[in-house]
Structures are given as C-alpha cells and as structure tokens.
Design a protein around this nucleic acid. Structure first.
Lengths: 340, 340
DNA sequence: GTTAGCACTCGGCAAGGCGGAGTGCTAAGG
DNA sequence: CCTTAGCACTCCGCCTTGCCGAGTGCTAAC
C-alpha cells in the first residue's frame, strides 16, 4: 500500500494535532481540522490503513490514534513545513547572544540558555573536542620560585592551563623555553602534542624534568575531556505532561548526568546538517521517550554540537528552525569576529 | 509546657521513623519502636501535646503525625546523634577525590559528584568569589601580531584569561609590560585591580590603549561572576517520593538554574560551621519543601561553599557527617598540597 | 498519672454504573 | 469501486458507594 496524497494529509493532521493537544486524535477531529468533503467513516478507514502500515498506533481500542516513531519520522522527513521564526524572535535571540557573550565559554553557555528559553525544551551544547583543534601557543609563566603555569591556547580561543613544578630557572630561560615550545607546537593538533614533545626532548634536555611533567599534563588534559557539556532549561522537561511522573524524568536526567552517554547521542559525522533522532531510534534507553534535534556549531575551525531534547511530541518544525538559526548566528560570531 | 525527657524521646522517634518511612507516624508505631512500658494511649496524649506545642502536625484527622519545620529544627539542633561514617565510606570518598582531582576546577566538580553519590541527594558546590581572592600574577601573551591573551592567576589556583587587541609591540615590550603588571598587582584583591590599573596609567602610558582594555576586561570578569556553581545528582531529587509529581521538582530546578538565587541560599558568614536550613526557613519559595545542609570549603585562602539539598525528610545526621568529612578532606588537599 | 475501651473520622481501595469518544463493520448510495 | 450513514461495541475516565484499616480524642476506671 502506498502513502497517497490523502493518507499523507491525514497523517500530517494527526501528527500536528497530537503535538498540539497531547491527546490521541480521532477521525472526527481529523475531519474538523482537515477541511475536505470527507466523512469520519472514510477517515477511519484511512486511519486503519495507516495503522496497519505502521505510521499510527492506538493506545487502546476505541481511543484515537497517536503517531508511531515511524509516523513521526515520515512527518519530520517529508511532511512538516519549514517554519520561519518571527522577526521578534530572531531579534530577541540575536540580542541575547550579542549582549551577553564575552568569550567562547560564555558563548557556549549562553547559547544553551537562549535555545532552551526559545524552544521551551531542554538544550544541550557540546564544546569542541580538544584533541582535534590546533594549538596556537604554549607559554610557561612563573607564579612562584619553583612553580609555573603552563598556558596553552587553541585556535578556537580556548585556554587550558595547569600549574607545574619546575626546577629553578631564570626568567630568561623560561622565556626562551616558551618560545621553543610555541615554535615547535603551534599549529599542531592538540592530540599530537605529547608526541611532538617527546621528539623535542633532545633539543630541550637542559630543561630536564619539566618536559616530562608537561607531557603528563597534556596527555591528561586531552584524555580527561574537561567539562564540555552545557545544559539549559532542565526545568522545561519537568513541565511536559509526559514527564509528569518524575521517575520518567529521572531516567532522562540520569543519562544527562553522564557526559559520555550524551556524546553517544551526538555521534554524527562532523559538520552534518540538522538531524532529528526520534524515540526508539535513540541509542540510550533512558531517553527513548524523547526526541533530539541535533545541529553543529562552527566555532572557528572547530566544531561544537547543539541539541534540543524534548518529548517525542515536540514541535519539530520550530525546534529545527531555532537550531538552524542559532547555528548560523554562532558561526557569525566567529566569521565576523564581531563578538570579541 | 516543657519538653521533658519523654516528650523529647517521642519527638525523636517520630522524626526518625518519618525520615525512614516517609509515612505519618501513629502512636502504635511509636510504642513499638520506643521500648518503654507505655501504652499507645499515653503516647497519644503526649503527641497531642507535641502538636499543640508546634512540633508535630497532622496531615488530616486520624492520620499519624509528621514533624513540623519546628520539630525538625529541634531534632537537628538537639536531638539527633552524630553519625560516624563507616570506614568503607570514608575510604571510598577519599579514593574518589584523590584519583580524579587534577586541579582546582576538577576538585570542585568531583566534590559535587562525590557528595551527591554519597548522600543520594542533590549536591551544590560554589567556587570561591573571585573578587575577594588575591591576584598572584598577570601576564600578557602574544597569540597573534596584534592580539594577546591576558592571563591572571589567583592565589587559589584559578586562572582567568581573555583575548585582547593590542597595539603593535615587540616581545621585549610585552615581557616588560607583564613584569610591571605583576609587580604592581600581585597580592592585591581581584576587586581592587581596576583601581590599581587606573593609578598605574601614567607609569605605563607608553602602552596606550591596552591598559584601558585591560581595565574593561577585569571589571567584566569580576562583575560577571563566571560560572561558579557545580551540581551533582540532580536525578536523585526526582527519586524522592515527595517529588513524584514532577511539577514540584520543576520548582526546585527553576531555582537551581538561577545562580544568583542559589547564592541567596548560601548567604552565611564566611567560615561558618555546618548549618541546616529547613523548609520554610528557606528564603526562596521554590525550595520550601526542601532542606539544605550547608558547609564551607577551604580552598587555600579562599572559601567555597558546599550544600546538600534534599527533602525536609532527609537523613540530616548522615548529610551533616558527609559534609563535615568532605570539608575536611578538601581542606587537606590544599594544606598538604598532596593533590597537585 | 496511666490505661483500656469506644465511638468517630478520614484516606485509600475496589466495585459498580454511566457517559462519551471513538472504533469496526455492514449495507446502501453515488 | 469508493464513499458514507448507521449501528453495535469497546474502553477510558469519572463518579458514587461501601468498606476496611489506621489512628485519633474522650471518658471512665485503675
């Protein structure tokens, strides 16, 4: 059986109506919304077909229908109309970002906040993976007689730093060492730094143990995956009727507390366009009742990720529109360097 | 009427039993738990007295009693016995901290995680206020022809940094400038830095606009209160029966999403001993159904704050014991510099 | 001062009844 | 052959009723 134009229209109506009301949708309602001279009986027959085809499900006999995951999938891929955000909304978002963003960390944090407020769902933002971004400079700063701070800046504007113990050395030595480090390491991927350091060992043998400490630090800094996940609007998920029972919500939060689990949700090729993960398509059981709209943030040369997590019954069109818009705005911040 | 020994014992029994079961406690139950030749009827009379005195309340006629806020208060202040953590637990906590902590930020983050896992409630950790800690060094690092990174380290081990535009200057100039900055600013409170910079203006006039940019940056960095709040175990609150209805939980999360609101909950004189905030004593309406056990973290010379947020029906003795223990361990990390 | 006994209150639960929404099927109509 | 009206049926949600159990307050006796 094929999805002809009428079935399609009915499916769309059911999905949109269910998204709006949260209730199962019956044939009468479809007829009321979808103005075309059709009787409920006809619609019933079509809906029975749609159920048989796996696009709709009945929570119980003699209730209306709700979309199955597959139904949502067709809706998202083919049926829904792209929404335009209203000028007020776009202005509000731009405003929020422009006025509050000072550096890359605040950009990420504010993005999470703004997206959650705009969508009324929970938003997730993942900062770029450190190991694939390039090192811009390495400095050694004295902060005590035998204590120094290693500061590594990345091309994306991130700053990683760590205190290390150093053997006594003069300030000149330290400057020279910084220069050598930067000269050798700038432009390399962060992941390659430990290797590069190892191969520098001879050249800088006079600085002795520092180089070993540095290698340790770098290896750690990379493997540790420093806090990369920012969330906004956690309370929003609790206001969704499907999570009225907080144990349901608890499952979701348990997943979100685990950063590696969240990474799995965003396992998409770098630079992918906006995509949607619906219900059971989800790799993590805790969020099988949720849908996730995923996008990519271009943070200069590096890539971050952004997601909107809501109930399966979420307003996909709007969420996608907001994610797209924010992707664009955040890139602009870098393209134009207008922010800082 | 006075709280004689018997009333006290009954009150303690009711509180502890209610904490354990979550149910209203009746006279029969009290008699069963509190072995002394007393009949339910006598206990009933005493409980009626306790209710009149404001220590207990009845959810409805002919239910058992539950403690009022005042009842919990007396319990916390006078009745509860200090709990000792088991050696396994203390070992586990120490282990967790030792093995995962690399720097001050990770110490704070891990503390939040460990405390939430140990208590099974939600934990909050506030990093130290920047403005009252002392500056240790200020450096200017070149990261491009006309771009530099200002790096300020504090005595607590925090590192603040920001990219700034600079006029063309030689590396020697930059080093000299860094030295001047550190010499003049080291040891000052962060809050005083903008003032100090202003008074340096003449001495460093040759560096022109940089100094203004720096002042901007510092003023911002201080006023912005960079992310200081870390949370752990958010899912725990959702598993509490009193928050079964997720709208209740939503109120709590709304408060916690607002960092300034959380600050209000921790409005205690610096260095105070562990204290408890119960239900309505709470300044924020969203968490009136919660209790908060608050403590202080000594992070070197600076002070952070730690809290355990649970239902009023929380295991106060245990929460207090854990907070005390963690306070101590975290201080040790600094005292002994054993961690890094 | 303590206790046993008793009447009373109230929440919670299960059973039963009812209305409404929605369905599937069938037969008639275009 | 598709569409539609009609009808019997199903099932949820809601309300009512009745009952049990837990717990209370009061009174009278010890």
């Amino acid at each position: 059986m094929q999805l002809d134009a009428r079935k399609t229209a009915i499916l769309r109506t059911v999905v949109e109506e269910h998204i709006k009301t949260g209730q199962p949708v019956g044939s009468r309602t479809v007829v009321r919304k979808y103005h075309l001279g059709l009787s409920p009986a006809t619609v019933r027959n079509e809906m029975a077909d749609l159920e048989e085809m796996g696009y709709l499900v009945q929570p119980h006999t003699s209730a209306g229908r709700i979309p199955s995951d597959r139904g949502y999938r067709v809706y998202v891929d083919e049926l829904m109309e792209e929404t335009k955000l209203s000028p007020e909304e776009t202005r509000w978002i731009e405003e929020q970002l422009r006025s509050r963003v000072r550096d890359i960390v605040s950009l990420i944090r504010e993005t999470a906040r703004v997206v959650s407020e705009a969508t009324n769902y929970l938003s997730l933002v993942l900062g770029p993976q450190l190991d694939t971004t390039s090192c811009q400079s390495v400095h050694l700063l004295r902060v005590g007689p035998e204590r120094a701070l290693v500061v590594i800046t990345t091309e994306t504007g991130f700053v990683e730093s760590r205190l290390v113990d150093i053997p006594p050395m003069t300030d000149e030595d330290m400057n020279a060492f910084s220069h050598i480090l930067t000269k050798n390491l700038a432009g390399r991927k962060m992941a390659d730094l430990p290797g590069c350091l190892a191969s520098m060992k001879d050249e800088v043998s006079r600085y002795g143990q520092v180089i070993t400490t540095l290698m340790d630090f770098l290896t750690n800094a990379l493997s540790e995956r420093e806090e990369r996940l920012y969330m906004g609007g956690q309370a929003n998920i609790l206001n969704q009727p499907e999570f009225r029972d907080s144990r349901k919500a608890g499952e979701v939060f348990s997943v979100l507390e685990n950063e590696e689990a969240v990474d799995k949700l965003f396992d998409i090729p770098p630079g992918s366009p906006v995509s949607v993960l619906i219900g059971e398509e989800n790799p993590l059981s805790g969020v099988r009742d949720c849908s996730l709209v995923r996008g990519t943030l271009r943070l200069g040369s590096a890539l971050g990720k952004i997601g909107v997590l809501g109930p399966k019954r979420m307003d996909y069109a709007r969420a996608v529109a907001i994610v797209r818009f924010v992707e664009e705005k955040v890139s602009d911040f870098f393209g134009g360097r207008s922010g800082w």
